[in-house]
Structures are given as C-alpha cells and as structure tokens.
Design a protein around this nucleic acid. Structure first.
Lengths: 338, 338
DNA sequence: TTGTACGCGTTATCAA
DNA sequence: TTGATAACGCGTACAA
C-alpha cells in the first residue's frame, strides 16, 4: 500500500475530492452523514493532507523563519524556545537560521523567506540583508517581519527591543553607589547596536557622576566566554587596575569571574563583576552574578505576536515595543576596596 | 510592481516558461545566448522561484525536521548548531521541534513530517511516536529518519548513539581509583534510555570493584540544574554521606557544586563531583568539572549524513553508529577523604 | 449539500 | 535547443 492521497479517501468514502477537502477544512458545510463517512476513511487509512499541495494552493507555508546569530548562547536559545512555543500555539513551525553572524548566511535565509519557504521573518541581527529600491515604498519590498535584539536601521518594520542604555546606566550606577570609580567595560563587538547602546549608558553614568571616562578601561570583546577571559587577564596587568568590571553579557562575566578566581582575587571584595542577560548559569556560579535580567519569555512572545499581526495584515502599521530590563543584585558586586 | 513570477521572466526574456526553468535548473541544456538573456531578466527583476510551486512539483520540501526535548540545554543546542551548519551545507533548512519531552508535541511534529513539510526527521527522543502496523514492513511506515541521543526501541532506522554505559563505567572507575567507595548517582529520568545505560555502567563499575550498590545513593533527577541542587541537598543530610557524586549531566553537576560550595564543602577535598556532556560552562566554573565529553559536532554531522543517505535512497540499509566518549579529568575530582 | 473544474508555480516529458 | 503541455495535491468558486 503506497502513500494514501485525497483521491483514495474520496474513493473509499464514495464522495468527490471536494467533499473530502471540505470535511477537513470546513466541516460545517458537510452533512453529518457524509462527514462521518469521510472521517472514518481518513482515520482508517491514516490519510494526512499533503502540505506541499496545500501550501501552494493557500499560498501559506505555515513556517516562520528565525534568523539569529548563535543558538548556543543561552540567552538566544531561551528566546528561541519561547518563540517556538508561541509559534506552535498559533499553528506555525519554526525554521531555524543560525548564522554565526555571517552576512552571507543571513542573506541565504532571507532568500528562503522571499521565495515563500516561510510566511514571516524574525530577524535578530543588526545588519541589513535587503537590497531596497529607495524609489518605491520600503514595505512592499520586505517580507512580513519583526526585528529584535540588535536593532536594525530600517524604517517600516516592527521591532521588539529592550532598554539597553537605561539598564546599562543603572548597572554602572550601582557600582558607583558602591564607591567604584575605576570601572572597566568588557563590551560586545562595537559594530553591534546592543553594545553601542550599552556603552552609551556606561558613559552617561560615569559622566553624570563626574568620573572621567578612561578609554583604556573599555575593552572590545565578542560576547563569548573566551573573550571575557582574555580581556580580564589584560585588565589585571594594568598598573592602575579597575575595581569593577562591567561585562556586556553573562558569558563574558563568567569568564571574568573564572580568571579572577584563578588569580586569587576575591569577588566582590577585591573586584566587583556585573553581567548582562541573567542566563541560568549566572545564578549558580560562585559568586552568583549581579546582572541585568532580560525578559526572554516576553521577548519571544511579543515577537511572535507582532509578526503574526503583520502576516495577517501587511498593511498594518509597524509596532515599536521597548521592554524594560531589571538589574538583579546578587553576590558579585560589593563596596570598592579602599 | 507586484511579485515577479516565472512568466514575467519568460515574457521579458522572450522565451517560454520551460526555458526559464531550464536556465535555472539545468543551464547546460540552454544555449549561451538565451541563457544570458534569461539570467539578465532574473537579475534585473530580482526573481526568485517560488518554493511552494517547486516543492510540490519536485516532491521535496528542502526541510529537515529536528525533534529534540529542550533546546535550552547547552548539550542540545550544541548539537542543533552542528546539525544546522551541516544541513545548510547540503541545501537543507532545519525545522525546529522543541518538545519539552511532551509526547503530544512530539506527535504533532511527526505529523508535519508525514504530511511532507520536511523530507527527513532527526529524532532525539526515546518515545515512539509512530503507530505502526506489525503486518507490514516497518520501513514503509516511517519517514526517512535518524534517531540519536535517546535510543528508540524500533527496528529498521538509522541511529547515531554514544557509549553511555562504557563512559559511565569509566567515570565511576575513576572515582574508585581515587579511593571512593560511597559514590552517589544523580540520574536523569529513569524512563530515559540514556539514564538506564549510564546506570548500568555505574552498577557494573561498583560491582566489579566489589562495592555493594546502595540504592539510597541513587537519586532520580531530571537533567535540570534545580534537581542537581535539590538532590545534593538531600544527599548531604544522610548520616552516611557519600564522598563523591556522579551526576548524569553537567547541568545537575553544576547545581551540585553550587550546593557544596554554599555549605562549605570543598570540592574535591571533601566531596568529588563528576558530570556528563562537557558543556562550555563546566570548564569555567570553580572548580572546573571532571566530566564525560560528548562529541557534539560529530553527533550532529553524522546525524545529517546518515539522514541524507536515507533521504536519497530509502531502501538503503539503516546504519548504526556508536561514537566513543571521553572522560575529561579536571579539578572536581580528587582522592577520597580519609 | 455535493460535484465539476480551475488554478496555485513549478518541473518534466515529449515533440518539434 | 526550444516550446507546448501535463502533472504535482490541494482548496474553492461556481453550478447543480
């Protein structure tokens, strides 16, 4: 017995193809008697409507493409999980595009969306992968999409972002309140918008407190544990060492704490460390990390909801959602050493 | 200007639909002159062949479905990343099915595969989601698929698994060699095959060393950090405390180390801890975790290669691949306290 | 309430 | 080397 198709069902139930289709899509239009007959045939044969036929006919793939730099990062994987759940609830499946921040791969996945393999796009990168014609309305040239995490410099699309600058400022102020004045920053790539915003918050907080920003204390990392390790090692060699390190994500902060522990620095007595993201592991390392908590669940949920709104009606005005962040004070920050 | 389709290209290049298609799929069959003309039209108009039409016609979706319990676990996300890269290299996109071990969701995603939304299935669960008719050949009732991580009790499918039992035995032997005799185990769910195998290795090692297995020292966890925390707390209350804890994954081991640190147990002087998976964070916590390294990259790559082989020729014999594991000795294990 | 017939966009077959 | 046309599997407008 080969693959069972809609015409097999029609034959078994002794109805037309159309009636089979109707029974499955709009049961109300079918008499109870024939409906049961059809459903029986479906159940017994294990018939499943072929999605390719259905997709082509309805012009919907049922997929949502998620383009994200690195699914291995717990912050990202948390978002993906939330997205996946919410999408599934709405009847969509998630196509995963892990790009490792490679522009070429970003483009390839965007191509897939534009070819109709997905009905909408969740875009977590700040690089613009579209080639747009400035003479025509932007929105006609873009798929239904929502941008998040790394803000994209593009009008007319919905965005779900977080208050990077404000949270960064709050984090630094927390350190200043504890008496720190030499506060280092281990940033992400300076090319990312998240890092730019967090750096602004960092500078603002220092400036407002009357502390001169020392550019030597600003080290460009790449959001990976290893760069947290390397840059902390470099900071420890400074003659004028900082008394606190603000890492722009938890992975790098975990790397920093590791180096400090290894070199017999006590955290926070000798050096305070602060992170960003509040990933699971920041709670369970020693000492537990003071960090900025991101509303991972909410980001994922809001992204899907905004995207579905756009997919249902592309003429809708794009939405701009800015979510608050929360500083979570744990054990890795303390008074500056005297 | 609305969506540009194949017939637009045909009109612009002044050829038939068939020639446009040929130019894109089998350029060799087209004369250089017309080919250039078509390619020009394609480039200028930004035409992208519609995947839904193409999929229906070729009976290929270009997708691979990955069903996995929890993408938030670094071990899983590592595998997914490897899968995604390898799949992309072969021209496939990855459909992500994060099920949270929910059987209903496993079924839903399998349905999607059977409906043709994906050409193949990577299945990382030990629960059988298929309803098979024992009278007919099993292989005809299953999609092209590969099973990994949690071994599925099902004949006729390819598998990529690791030597859980052997590695577990090696880990426990390492502790025994260090003089430990009261060795606790914090397992995953007893319903999972991975836990069953690791438990076998644990028992074997103890038995062969002449140590009686004490069932009170075997605690059923769920592979999450929290359960590592809870169960370690419980173990510490025992009158006859163990001197070592073998956690069946790193997340729980990290939870265990956290509890031990908090309660002023020194690791490994007072208590040894061993993990499983070798996730990134096990290297950077204090102390660095002794653990069993899983070949994450290799698992992902082998899965895709085995799957593609099946997709290309479903009559192929299923392959059974058993990958070795490696005990990585770091700082969380040491001689048993006297 | 049901059936007929068309079309979604593409590729493959066949004939020219 | 190219073009006309059928077919992939389904949903729906229209007619009955």
């Amino acid at each position: 017995m080969a693959k069972v198709g809609i015409k097999d069902i029609a034959r078994i139930a002794n109805v037309s193809l159309a009636t089979v289709s109707r029974t499955l899509r709009t049961p109300d239009l079918v008499s109870e008697e024939t409906r049961l007959r059809v459903l029986n045939a479906v159940a017994e044969s294990g018939y499943k409507p072929n999605r390719m036929g259905m997709n082509l006919r309805t012009q919907r793939s049922g997929n949502i493409m998620v383009i994200i730099p690195d699914i291995t990062n717990p912050f990202n994987s948390g978002i993906i999980r939330a997205i996946e759940h919410e999408a599934q609830q709405h009847g969509y499946a998630v196509l995963l595009g892990d790009t490792q921040s490679n522009p070429e791969r970003e483009r390839q996945y965007v191509d897939l969306v534009e070819a109709g393999q997905a009905d909408g796009l969740l875009y977590f990168s700040g690089r613009n992968p579209f080639t747009i014609n400035p003479d025509r309305p932007i929105k006609d040239q873009l798929p239904a999409m929502v941008n998040s995490n790394e803000e994209l410099d593009l009008e007319g699309i919905s965005k779900v972002i977080v208050d990077n600058e404000g949270a960064s400022k709050e984090a630094v102020n927390h350190l200043i309140d504890l008496g720190h004045r030499r506060i280092a920053a281990i940033t992400g790539p300076l090319s990312t918008v998240s890092t730019q915003r967090r750096l602004e918050g960092y500078r603002e907080a220092l400036t407002e407190a009357g502390i001169t920003v020392d550019d030597k204390l600003i080290c460009e990392g790449n959001y990976q544990v290893e760069s947290g390790i390397e840059l902390t090692e470099r900071l420890l060699q400074f003659k004028q060492r900082p008394t606190a390190i603000f890492c722009f994500n938890d992975d790098m902060a975990i790397g920093a704490v590791n180096v400090l522990n290894k070199n017999d620095y006590r955290v926070p007595e000798d050096m305070s460390v602060i992170g960003f993201d509040d990933i699971l592991y920041s709670k369970v390392i020693q000492p537990a990390l003071t960090t900025v908590a991101q509303p991972v669940e909410d980001i994922g949920r809001q992204c899907i909801q905004a995207l579905i709104a756009q997919m249902n009606d592309k003429t809708l005005e794009p939405t701009y959602l800015k979510l608050p962040l929360e500083l979570v004070i744990r054990d890795s920050t303390g008074p500056a050493p005297s």
